[in-house]
């Protein structure tokens, strides 16, 4: 699991995840994601899921944590390039209403 941060502007960083986001890899990236999401002055966080080959419930859970943190500060979370498998697992968790809007 790799995590790359592109800073287009400090208020709108883009995180690119690479690998498998599951219960074994979540502990590695969780802290970095939460630190980013909790940063002051953040308006919008984009998580690019292009290279996420698979995700399990732990992955969904960590996205929920990120979402909570951002929503709390009136920011926006965008999940981009989620493939059908990822959407499916999010749908199974009944979180498509929450994350559905953020897909783009």
């Amino acid at each position: 699991m790799k995590l790359r941060v592109h800073k287009t502007t400090p208020a709108r960083p883009v995180v690119e995840l690479d690998g498998i986001l599951n219960r074994d890899t979540v502990p590695e990236v969780r802290r970095a994601l939460l630190r980013l999401a909790g940063r002051k002055g953040l308006k919008e966080l984009e998580i690019d899921l292009t290279n996420v080959r698979a995700m399990d419930t732990a992955g969904v859970a960590v996205l929920v944590e990120v979402y909570r943190l951002i929503e709390h500060r009136d920011g926006i979370l965008r999940l981009t390039h989620a493939d059908e498998n990822i959407r499916r697992i999010i749908r199974l968790a009944c979180l498509d209403e929450v994350f559905g809007k953020t897909f783009g």
Partner: peptide, 15 residues
């Protein structure tokens, strides 16, 4: 797993 308590709780709620 080495998942933190909060993540585990969210996973439990999803299930």
């Amino acid at each position: 797993t080495r998942l933190p308590e909060e993540t585990i709780r969210i996973m439990a709620l999803i299930k």
